[in-house]
Design a protein around this nucleic acid. Sequence first.
DNA 1: TTGAAAGCGCTAACAC
DNA 2: GTGTTAGCGCTTTCAA
Lengths: 347, 347
Amino acid sequence: MDIREIAKLARVSTATVSRVLNSVPTVNPKLAKRVLDAAALRGYVPNTQARALVSGKSRTFGLVVSEITNPFFPQIVETFGNLAVANGYEMLLASTGNDLKRMELAVRRMIERRVDGVAILTFGMEDSLLADLRVRKVPLVGVVVGPTVPGVTNIRIDYRHGIRQAVQHLAALRHQRIAFITGPLRLMSAMARKTAFEESMREIGLYAPPELLVEGDHTVEGGVAALGRLVRLAERPTAILCSNDMTAIGVIREAYELQINVPNQLSVVGFDDIHLAQFITPPLTTVQMSQSELATLAFQALLAARERPAQTRQSNECVLVTSLVLRKSTALVLGAQPIPRPPDFIS
Amino acid sequence: MDIREIAKLARVSTATVSRVLNSVPTVNPKLAKRVLDAAALRGYVPNTQARALVSGKSRTFGLVVSEITNPFFPQIVETFGNLAVANGYEMLLASTGNDLKRMELAVRRMIERRVDGVAILTFGMEDSLLADLRVRKVPLVGVVVGPTVPGVTNIRIDYRHGIRQAVQHLAALRHQRIAFITGPLRLMSAMARKTAFEESMREIGLYAPPELLVEGDHTVEGGVAALGRLVRLAERPTAILCSNDMTAIGVIREAYELQINVPNQLSVVGFDDIHLAQFITPPLTTVQMSQSELATLAFQALLAARERPAQTRQSNECVLVTSLVLRKSTALVLGAQPIPRPPDFIS
DNA sequence: TTGAAAGCGCTAACAC
DNA sequence: GTGTTAGCGCTTTCAA
């Protein structure tokens, strides 16, 4: 069944059917109704491939993430996908696992399917991803940590804001020995978080000795291992800030194993605020980086690029702010004396 | 850049280029090399829409799930997506939230993009999903709980096997008051799990009184609420089997809140074995329903349907078995006397 | 305002 | 074994 069949049934030309289906306003309402009725009668659905072929637009956006099974990403996929559908687009999903081969495969798929734009939300716009897509003038948006990437919409994450809040929150609870468990330091995003931590500490006159900066890998297992190392220290930390929530979950799990009470003997703060963070025991205090906001920023940038000619697209930049969410995994440092209440002003 | 440009560069016809690119074996290797070189030189990538248009196959499979943010599904999406790519397909993802409107939208999208098959992994092949796709002879595969659905590949889940193992495991730990927290009972899958529980109990001469069967909703919050109700009982259960892992996580969280030790004062068993189950505290004993196996079964069925003409496709059925995974959230019932060791045979 | 017809990039039947 | 060519289903000039 095709447009010709509907045209014949409605006794108009295929051009008119096409116009009606694309809401071209200059069509006689009488004819339009005939077309719509015919289409409904036959259950006609236009063929997207034919449309794409002639229009040169696939109405598909690519979304590149690190790993769908990483709890950080499903919310992004969900939001991006919903926005896509709401705007008549489809989403081409690629999960690269930060692996070069898979990145190249992802790019190849995007090009084959002629996507109208690609959002790279792997927290590092790897060159292997960019080069081919650039040549083909595919609109690009991605998360940036270092210098602004030219010819691309940059979503800059303000790690500092949330991490500073976390550090100051811990300091307010009288913590001084605050450890930081990093992510894999080859990832720019992990590096940026670590740097933000160090700067935030320095800012309030605290010092994080090297033994309190331990490298994790953004997995639960990594958190488990990292706590294992930290408790062997002569002087243990009283609080731990983690580079992501999965790490924090690992820390809490291992603390339980080691009979260390969280938050009373050890305060733990995560990063990301994945959905699950509020449901672990105790509910995790963490720095929120809104996944839905990130996905929305990325999608909007792609949608905007659609209208604009390629040369007008100078690299613009937007910022995603992070901020602390207080839950139950932090407490006053053990043995801290409450400051005595001053005599009441009135009585 | 198109096939003609490559043809000209390689001094052959477009037909030959097409043959080379599709690995038709009867092409002169000399010419083939010229074509491949030309394509590589120009970075030529065939246009999938044009291919789809002429071949009538989009090389896209639809995947319908309930909710990507439900931790059960990302692994399915991952596996299905990887298999798709490995076989030259793309995945069209739809998340319906068991909502009628969204289901219909999903079907519409699938039809518009002319998918070559649809896997419905929402644990209930809703009629609103099936009708339209059937009319258009789209190969279908789905999870079935009740009677076999005709004209579709049915993946039947053997809930009984795993749940029976769970019940017998608890019984072996001397539990007699075993509660079951169900999912939303309008879902056939939740109903099937509940039934499997009741039958497994009866089978070993245990009885689950109505007050020990409480309705949850497959969320963490639901688990929290359900435990709240169970602890108010005059005679509390000593073990709880949950209809899914999220519920179990909720139970464990609330137990912590109520100072009930899991597993020593309360044994908890989940269902699904989501990735996270092994990382909560204590690691969750649960009934595994392999997500990757499910996705693989679904994908293979779609791939197989591709070769077969529509009428040959009588509804075939395959089974996915569930089975208990032992971790740390269950223990001997409190106060159970160990059975005294008999005098040693030798001494 | 509507229709006729060209053509998007590719595959496959047919001819050589 | 290779080339010529007719479409796949649609949009979009252009002419009426």
